[in-house]
Amino acid sequence: MKIVAQVKLLPASAHDADALAATLRACNRAANAASEVAFAKDLKRRNVLQDAVYHRIKADFDLGAQSAVRVVKKVCDAYATLKGNLKAGNHGPEGSRRRARVESGPVRFREDAAQPYDDRILTWNLDARTVSIWTLAGRLKHMPFVCSPETLRLLASRKGESDLVMRDGMFFLIATVDVPEPETYEPDGFLGVDLGIVNIATTSDGEIMSGRQVNRYRRRKRDLRAKLQKKRTKSAARVLKRQRRKETRYATQRNHIIAKKLVTTAERTSRGIGLEDLSGIRQRVTARKDQRARLHSWAFAQLGAFIAYKARRAGVPVVHVDPRNTSRQCSECRHTHRTNRVTQARFVCRSCGTVMHADHNGSRNIAHRADAAWQRGAVNRPRTA
């Protein structure tokens, strides 16, 4: 399986940092020039587009030979991705809007968009924790980088391209690493996980991971943004810039912690993980105006993705089930009625009288459905000899 490893570059001087930034600007301006040709002449294949623009972008933007090749590939990959997205969502009003955007003009790249590097223009020295990277100002040799010990271990099996990225004036290299994927084991039952807003995750074992702290943090950040935006001063703008993506990083860290805890629990008990299939929930669910911010800042898709990839690395099977009526069905007697859900947190079965936390009841239903789906032949079953 493929996972992403990220390291932070530490330019030794302002000159080195400026060289990296100038290189990104030049590469993305060249990509925009190549994209205009690709759109105007319908040249979306790499070899054909490279023949048409290679010498021009190399001379106009002072690029090296291999950098110009990487720029052309980036443009072709962008159009291939766009075509794939159109094919996947070709129906309905959203598909019409996508087609209109594609037909309106060429793909555009931000000046600080990521730029791919291959082994000809980027050399890693993992022992010294340095890289040698091509820039417009020449090769920057022995540029140090920092990362976690786990990331350093992953980079030992790195192959292929790495992307140079600039965020908030800092530079990162992002590499895709192939790691061996263990066999998926035969689970002894399933750990059901109910995802929510009030409680981020509740397991069928009864463990509740509250979202109170995350929601309080988001509300505080939202109030701070509103206060700073009203000031309209340069100092307020600087503070807003420092706050950029801080909330996202916080939510991402929390999701990583929760996903790791769930996967570790399932692996330790030889169980699989049952999740609700929540794709498209934002389009299906309506919310009052005062709750829209909470609904749309809920990173359940990210949490689900983290659980899925961590489970694959551990060989833990994951089954997605239909979420319909998981909050209204009794996990003891299977009686289903909307009045069973008394409040957000309280579940009382009108048939057998079972009383429990509503999210705990929902997670137990998810576990039952995941186990039944697995017995019927769900995806991610272990391969048999």
Rank of each mutant, 00 (worst) to 15 (best):
M1L: 05
K2S: 10
K2G: 06
K8L: 05
L10R: 11
S13W: 00
S13E: 00
S13G: 00
A19F: 08
A19W: 07
A22R: 15
A22E: 14
A22S: 14
A26S: 15
A26V: 08
N32V: 14
A34K: 01
A34G: 07
E36N: 15
A40C: 11
A40S: 15
R45A: 14
R45E: 14
R46L: 01
N47Y: 06
L49F: 01
I57C: 01
K58C: 00
A59Q: 11
A59P: 00
D60T: 14
D60A: 14
D62C: 11
S67L: 08
K74C: 01
D77I: 05
D77T: 12
A78N: 02
Y79W: 13
G89D: 15
P93H: 11
R97W: 15
R98A: 15
R99A: 15
A100N: 11
E103W: 08
P106I: 07
F109Y: 12
D118A: 01
T130M: 05
L136G: 13
H142Y: 03
M143F: 05
M143W: 06
P144L: 00
S148P: 03
P149D: 09
E150N: 09
T151R: 05
S157C: 04
R158P: 01
L164Q: 03
M166T: 10
A175C: 13
A175H: 09
E183W: 09
T184L: 08
F190M: 06
D194R: 05
L195R: 14
V198I: 09
N199Q: 05
T203W: 06
S210N: 02
R212S: 06
Q213K: 09
V214H: 03
V214L: 11
N215Y: 03
R216D: 13
Y217G: 04
R222T: 15
D223W: 03
R225W: 14
K227H: 13
R232D: 12
K234M: 02
S235G: 08
Q243T: 12
E247R: 00
E247S: 10
T248W: 00
R249I: 06
Q253F: 08
H256F: 12
H256Q: 13
I257N: 11
I258N: 02
T265R: 10
E267A: 12
T269N: 04
I273H: 02
S279G: 10
R284M: 12
A287T: 06
K289C: 02
Q291A: 04
H296A: 07
A299F: 10
A301H: 10
Q302T: 11
F306D: 13
F306V: 08
A308L: 11
A311D: 09
A311I: 06
V316D: 03
V316R: 03
R324M: 09
N325T: 03
S327I: 00
R334K: 10
R338Y: 02
T339L: 09
N340P: 10
V342L: 12
V342W: 01
T343H: 08
T343S: 12
Q344H: 04
V348N: 03
R350S: 08
S351G: 03
D359P: 02
D359Y: 04
I366W: 01
H368Y: 11
A373D: 13
N380A: 07
P382E: 03
P382Y: 03
